[in-house]
Structures are given as C-alpha cells and as structure tokens.
C-alpha cells in the first residue's frame, strides 16, 4: 500500500530527502515534467488545454520531528523539536536518527527514581535524551552528527477492517491522494506540489506556487479529528468516517467561495459524503498560496486523522477513498469545463 510506504519514510521539515526520493520514483512516469526548487519542494507538471483553468494540487511531505543539538559525553543525544510536538508524547518511544536511520529510544529516569511529585509533572525536553546505545560521545559521533533529524519509528499497520495506524499521516495522506490523482489524465494543465517545511511555518508551498501562478489551488491535508472521549461534539472539528473535510475557515484562510461551492456541488452530484472542518484553529499551506501575487482562489480538502503530530495516528480508509474520489470527480468536471468560477465575495 502506497500510504504505508509514505508513512514509514522519514522527512522532517528541512530534511525531506527520503520521502522526496520515494515520491519522485513513484510518480515520475506519470508526469510530463518533474523538478525540485531552491527549498527542496518537488514540483510536477502534466500538460493540458490552456483554455481550461490551471489547477495546482498541493500536499506537504514534511513531518514534525526532532533535531540532534548535542552529543553528550556519555553518548546520549540531546535534541529539540521541529514543528509542533506535544512534549508529553515523547518519552519511551522508538525513533530513528539521521540518513542511516540509526535506531534509538527516548529514555527518562525510571519511576522508581522519581519523587511522587515529579511523576505528576510532564517531562521537559531537556530531561529527555535519545539513546542510540553508543558507549560515549566518540562512538555516537561516528554515526550521528549535530543537526541530524530524528522521527518516530512507527510501523504502519491495519487496525480494524477500515482503520490504519501510522506516523505522519499529516500529511502523507495528502501526498498519497495526490500521487494517485497524478496517475489519471485530465484535460486541464495540472501542477502537483509536494512541499517542504509546512510544519515550521508554511514555508515551502508558497515558494513553489509563486512561479506556477495557478488559476486555482486545492491543498490536500490530513487534519485533526477530535471525536474522542473527553471532548464534546461541538469541538470535534472533524469526525472520522464522515468523509472528506472541507475547511470553512482557519487561522490562515477563508477559502474562495466559488471554488468551495464547486467542490460541494461535485460531492452532492456524485453522492460523496463530506463534512466541514468545524474548527477555525491552525492553518495550512493554503494560507500562503492564496495570498500570492494578486491572489489565487484556494480551498482545502482534508482526510480526518486522529492523534496528528504524535507517534501513532489513525485514519479511516473509507475517508481516504472518498477524498480521492471527490477530488477525482472535481478534476473530471474541471476537464469538461463544468465550472464557472465567478468571484462572488
């Protein structure tokens, strides 16, 4: 399964080497042009009828992770987070470090050695170390350098008939949907961007889209689903199993209404269930893209994912398929000139 490979590949913001190579290998046959830019975004192009709108589909390939900031004398690695990580999820996890994927564990003082009051407080990043088993700093430095990145060593697997587990579904699920769509042929000019550095401030996609200057953009994301115990229904944001989530507004964008309407019409005409992303918090690459130059009509379609930014996230395969189908149907209608995008703001 494509999503499995994507999920297990490493690619922390600013160090997306492995995931980029994987995606490039998988899609190069299906596109007319493939290139990287100054930041490392992977940009692909499929030519089309220039009388139709140029569409950009974007998904970010970077993931949150850790960076090694110091090798201690005893061989342990100090680190800092890259992107938004809840520090409370780090302790006792397996990680892989650097290009050679050196295995390590994140350890902390055993419970026996802690005072009861200590046990109640979350561990600070400074109290945590990656242990790769090196006996001292000299041994560690043979395989790890300062600046190397580390990610969770989470294996992808199927949990129930419809549920899969893995790391970095935010936004490898978007990458996976985009890669599947790129295998299809549509009539309009299509660009795909697998962007870098989304998790450290929405930096890659805007740069990639600047030269493309598309007529329309859809950002494909994996977004928070908080339909879990302890949260009330009105703060779920999205619900797993209820189909693709359309962003109505977040911290970075109010999506273009004409484009949103077209996506909704497509869903309704083809009987694909959808939901709105009902939180206005956080943001995506769409925030950068829609403000480029004189403005680019942009929308965001997401697969709901539980426990994003943690070592193990969950998603529903029906949501995945429905998201892919919705975007495919949208592209088919765009091919046939089926939309009239009048600005109605």
């Amino acid at each position: 399964m494509l999503l499995a490979e994507l999920s297990e590949a490493i690619g922390v913001s600013g160090a997306e080497y492995e995931i980029r190579d994987l995606i490039r290998e998988e899609i190069k046959e299906h596109v007319d042009e493939i290139r990287t830019d100054a930041l490392g975004n992977l940009i692909v192009h499929k030519e089309g009828d220039s009388s139709l709108p140029t569409l950009l589909l974007a998904a970010h390939m970077d993931e949150i992770g850790l960076m090694v900031t110091k090798v201690e004398k005893n061989g342990l690695l100090s680190f800092k987070p890259i992107g938004g990580i809840d520090k409370r999820v780090l302790v006792s996890k397996k990680v892989v470090v650097g290009k050679d994927k050196i295995p390590g564990v994140i350890g902390a003082k055993a419970i026996h050695l802690q005072r009861p009051s200590e046990r109640k407080r979350p561990l600070k990043i400074k109290q945590l170390y990656i242990d790769i088993g090196a006996k001292d700093d000299k041994a560690a430095k043979k395989v790890v350098n300062i600046g190397d990145t580390a990610t969770f060593a989470t294996k992808f697997s199927q949990l129930g008939p419809k549920t899969v587990k893995g790391k970095a579904f935010d936004d490898r699920v978007g990458c996976s949907v985009l890669m599947e769509l790129l295998r299809n042929d549509y009539d309009f000019p299509l660009y795909g961007v697998f962007s870098v550095q989304e998790e450290v401030g929405l930096r890659g996609a805007g740069v990639a889209a600047y030269d493309i200057n598309p007529d329309l953009t859809i950002v494909i994301e994996g977004t928070t689903a908080s339909d879990v115990p302890g949260s009330k229904e009105h703060v779920y944001s999205t619900t797993v199993g209820e189909g693709p989530a359309l962003t109505m507004m977040d911290m970075t964008i109010i999506p273009n209404r004409g484009l949103m309407q077209s996506i909704i019409e497509t869903a309704e005409d083809t009987n694909i269930g959808y939901q709105f992303r009902r939180s206005t918090a956080a943001g995506t690459d769409a925030g950068r893209i829609h403000l480029l130059k004189e403005g680019i009509p942009t929308a965001v379609v997401s697969v709901p994912v539980r426990y994003i930014h943690s070592p193990a996230s969950l998603l529903n395969l029906d949501d995945y398929e429905a998201t892919k189908n919705l975007l495919n149907e949208f592209c088919k209608r765009l091919s046939s000139g089926g939309f009239n995008f009048e600005k109605d703001n």
């Binding site: 830019d37 100054a38 930041l39 975004n41 930096r203 805007g206 740069v207 990639a208 600047y210």
Partner: peptide, 9 residues
C-alpha cells in the same frame, strides 16, 4: 530571504 519569490537558497 529564503521564502522570497520562488525561493532563495
């Protein structure tokens, strides 16, 4: 600098 226009190394 890095995110100016289409990106600067």
């Amino acid at each position: 600098i890095q995110v100016t226009r289409s990106g600067i190394p």
